[in-house]
Design a protein around this nucleic acid. Sequence first.
DNA 1: GTTGGAACTTAACATATGTTAGTGGCCGGA
DNA 2: TCCGGCCACTAACATATGTTAAGTTCCAAC
Lengths: 246, 246
Amino acid sequence: MTDEAFPYTRRFLQGRSRDALSDREKGLLEGLVDKVERFTAPHTILNRGDVVDQSTILIEGTVARVIHEDGKRHIVALHVPGDFVDLHGFALKRLDHDVVSIGSVQIGFAPHDRIQKILETEPTLARMLWYSTLLDAAMHREWIMKLERLSADGRLAHLVAELWQRLDFVDLAGENGFSLPLTQQELADACGTTSIHMNRVVKKLRETGVVDISRGQVTVLDKTLLKELGAFDPAYLYGRGPLKLT
Amino acid sequence: MTDEAFPYTRRFLQGRSRDALSDREKGLLEGLVDKVERFTAPHTILNRGDVVDQSTILIEGTVARVIHEDGKRHIVALHVPGDFVDLHGFALKRLDHDVVSIGSVQIGFAPHDRIQKILETEPTLARMLWYSTLLDAAMHREWIMKLERLSADGRLAHLVAELWQRLDFVDLAGENGFSLPLTQQELADACGTTSIHMNRVVKKLRETGVVDISRGQVTVLDKTLLKELGAFDPAYLYGRGPLKLT
DNA sequence: GTTGGAACTTAACATATGTTAGTGGCCGGA
DNA sequence: TCCGGCCACTAACATATGTTAAGTTCCAAC
């Protein structure tokens, strides 16, 4: 059976574990998705503090997890298609962050009672779902390291390298870059700096021939420089796909 | 049965879920611990990249999770007694960070095959273990927010407030502070700054009457100021215990 | 095409933080 | 007892980043 038979979870399968699952299990995973929604304008899908009874899987586009604090937004995670965005909501129930769409997105919703049933009856899938939340935490740790260690240009380089790699896992990376609908303000929110300073950094990386970010498109000019500047080692992503940046 | 019957997991039970478990389940949890070790000097217990077949629970003292990068150490998480330090190692197997002891610590080891058995047969405990790793991720997210949003004094204030709260959950917080064996260098490593600058910040917080950190002892001088400065809202800890700082 | 707003860009200045260098105190080992 | 090393602390200077205030480009709605 081809992956096209699983329109909602296709990217998830590409990213992690296509070969580890039987077709029956893939079908069960696909069956988690209850309904699908598309948002074309920026939209806050879930709010911090919400009590949730379903989790969301990103099918297409980009979403961010955001913590608002006195008027400023701080991006604590970015997601690519195939990611379970708030699977942790299944156990924690109350969200500690907002979930917002960036650009045009398509999202699937998985009711918690369906997840519950899978957990009880499908040990392989249960393990995989847990695994998926642990990978999330590993990325968080790398972001912490990035924020503690790197200055603004390094942070941007790291962000670009990570997104490129993660998009590559789900077959969405181009040969020399990828499409990224983030504004400079949003890049700044993800790197813990201001849009003015992010503008300086974007300009600098462009002029030094590292990476060009403009009009929603990332073009990597020198992947070695990019990796060095971002102190990027993809090991924490635990990926099984081809490691384009390695 | 009193909690003293569970010497290894007593703090874990105090922190989260004492009432949610039957005595039988508490016994099973306690039985996860295979052997116990004590380290009196600073010691690297596990290394990044290690393939692990057991997970560690902190019984007494402080441990840090550390990512080394060109000679510098970056603390990505700190743990208090009762924490499962690397439960994620059960699923991920390969560690993406070191685990190091700070001061004198006592640590229990839980072989993965025992955890596996619990997961297969004890849904309540399985859920609780998953929950525990998700809480870990929630703290990571808060650290990301803290690093993105706060300057060095705010970061230190946040760190102190968080540790005080978490120690309170496990009955280890004092009325006006707590014992903390971190050096200024280590505080700097956890706040993404240098020891020199951390020294400035420690001095400033002491002089402005927020908190006094000296000789391994944290004395909170003004908890309202501390919370404000650190933008600290304990909601993300999802705690059930008394919220001393609220 | 015009208009309005959002995104991008730049400049000048203030501040936080990093860097390098060095001091003195404390404590444990020889 | 002395010694050596780690830790706390300070100073002077360099740099990265934040802040405020503009101007410009781009694009979409009308």
